[in-house]
């Protein structure tokens, strides 16, 4: 059985109808953890926003996205909004744009919870504080009472993670969820993500440019380039025996620590003449 089935998903923008996502197809089973890696600008975030029904009005979407058997493409906003609370949630790449600058973050997390559960105020606060604590915010009371601009980059990112996980959705989409975190906090957050996904039998789409993190979180990966999926497969196969020259370049350039300090770092172009892809 599949939880999510994407077929020929295409997203174009604006009057010029620039293609950002070009006829991609993939499946996600329940509890599966799928990584998406690929070049900056290759369509990873646009794919995630299409799944969430959060693309701007200038976007034209075609193809099919089925979540638990329900078609999402063409569904009215109000219907998708309900699924967003219940079935799926997302951790956004740029935390500041996903947070309301005029509202304390504790209240923002609580609103997600109440929207979903329809419960009244009292115990929500306690649950919010506990969730903020679990994402590694030791001074969670203070964080809950802060406005977004009063928090550091990593604190904001973890507030978003708390919002995405607090309702235990079936599908969690994480778009670069740990970019603003140092490795020790990152390890803690990834452990929490694993716990929540396991406890709730939830599936995950995990977008990251950190191949090491992807290899730890995901069982399978898609590689995107210029809006297309150029390679897909189990993590172990893809990272040890990549087939597409772009993937080979990506894997080969990921090890900065193997280059002497100060020496020129290899880029994908050294392995894969860029024009080949177009």
């Amino acid at each position: 059985m599949t939880l999510l089935a994407v077929r020929d998903l295409t997203v174009r923008f604006g009057r010029r109808r620039l293609v950002a996502v070009d006829s991609i197809s993939f499946d996600l089973g329940p509890r599966q953890r799928l990584g998406i890696i690929g070049e900056s600008g290759s369509g990873k975030t646009v794919t995630a926003l299409a799944l969430m029904g959060l693309l701007p009005e200038t976007a034209q979407v075609s193809g099919s996205i089925q979540l638990a058997g329900r078609e999402l493409v063409g569904l009215p906003d109000s219907a998708i909004a309900r699924l967003r609370g219940d079935l799926m949630s997302m951790v956004f790449q740029e935390p500041m744009t996903a947070l309301d600058p005029t509202m304390r973050v504790g209240r923002q997390v609580a609103e997600v919870l109440l929207l979903h559960a329809g419960r009244s105020g009292g115990p929500a606060r306690a649950q919010v504080i506990e969730m903020l604590h679990r994402v590694g915010l030791s001074d969670s009371e203070r964080v809950a009472d802060s406005y977004p601009h009063q928090l550091s980059g990593g604190q904001r990112q973890r507030c978003l993670l708390a919002m995405a996980l607090i309702n235990s959705p079936d599908l969690v989409i994480c778009d670069e969820p740990t970019t603003a975190l140092d490795v020790t906090v990152q390890a803690k957050v990834l452990r929490l993500l694993d716990e929540v996904l396991t406890a709730e039998s939830a599936a995950c789409v995990f977008i990251s440019h950190d191949l090491a993190v992807v290899s730890q979180v995901c069982s399978d990966v898609l590689v995107m380039l210029d809006g297309r999926i150029v390679e897909a497969g189990p993590v172990a196969r893809l990272f040890t025996a990549p087939e597409h020259p772009y993937t080979r370049g990506l894997v080969a350039t990921s090890r900065i620590d193997e280059v002497p300090p100060g020496a020129r770092l290899p880029t994908v172009e050294d392995f894969f003449p860029r024009e080949q892809a177009r």
């Binding site: 890696i37 690929g38 070049e39 900056s40 790449q93 980059g153 670069e176 970019t179 603003a180 440019h209 191949l211 370049g249 990506l250 350039t253 990921s254 900065i256 100060g262 020129r264 770092l265 290899p266 880029t267 994908v268 172009e269």
Partner: peptide, 21 residues
């Protein structure tokens, strides 16, 4: 620069770091 390469894929990150060097 505050985390200027944290959102970049490994190849573009390498290019920006080479530029800064």
């Amino acid at each position: 620069a505050d985390e200027p390469v944290s959102a970049l894929d490994v190849s573009v990150r390498a290019q920006v770091l080479n530029l800064l060097s």
